[in-house]
Computed example of a mutant assay.
Amino acid sequence: MAANFVVYLAIFTFTAAFSGALASDPDLLQDVCVALPSSSGGVKVNGFACKDDANVTAADFFFDGLAKPGLINNSVGSIVTAANVEKVPGLNTLGVSLSRIDYAPGGLNPPHTHSRATEMVFVLDGELDVGFITTANKLVSKTINKGEIFVFPRGLVHFQKNNGDKAAAVIAAFNSQLPGTQSIPAALFTATPPVPDEVLTKAFQLGTKEIDKIKSKLAPKN
Rank of each mutant, 00 (worst) to 15 (best):
N4E: 15
N4A: 14
F5I: 10
V6C: 09
V6P: 03
A10K: 14
A10E: 14
A10T: 10
F12S: 14
F14K: 05
T15P: 01
A16N: 13
A16E: 12
A16S: 13
A17Y: 09
G20M: 02
D25H: 08
P26W: 05
L28S: 11
L29Y: 07
V32I: 08
A35N: 09
L36K: 11
S38L: 13
S38Q: 12
S39I: 08
S39C: 08
S40Y: 10
G42N: 15
V43D: 09
V43R: 14
V45T: 12
G47W: 05
G47K: 03
A49P: 03
A49G: 08
D53V: 04
D53M: 04
D53K: 07
A54T: 05
V56S: 06
V56P: 03
T57W: 09
D60W: 11
F61Y: 15
F61K: 07
F62D: 09
F63C: 09
G65Y: 11
G65N: 08
G65W: 12
G65E: 10
L66E: 08
I72M: 04
I72V: 15
N73R: 11
N74G: 07
S75I: 01
V76W: 00
S78L: 03
V80D: 03
V80M: 02
T81K: 15
A83R: 02
A83V: 01
V85W: 11
V85L: 10
L91Y: 02
L91P: 07
T93F: 09
L94F: 02
G95W: 00
L98C: 10
S99D: 08
I101K: 02
D102L: 06
P105N: 04
L108R: 04
P110T: 01
P110M: 00
P111F: 00
H112Y: 01
H114Y: 02
R116L: 02
A117G: 09
M120I: 14
V123Q: 02
L124F: 11
E127G: 02
E127F: 00
L128G: 03
D129P: 00
D129Q: 07
G131N: 08
I133F: 15
T134H: 12
T134M: 14
T135I: 10
T135D: 15
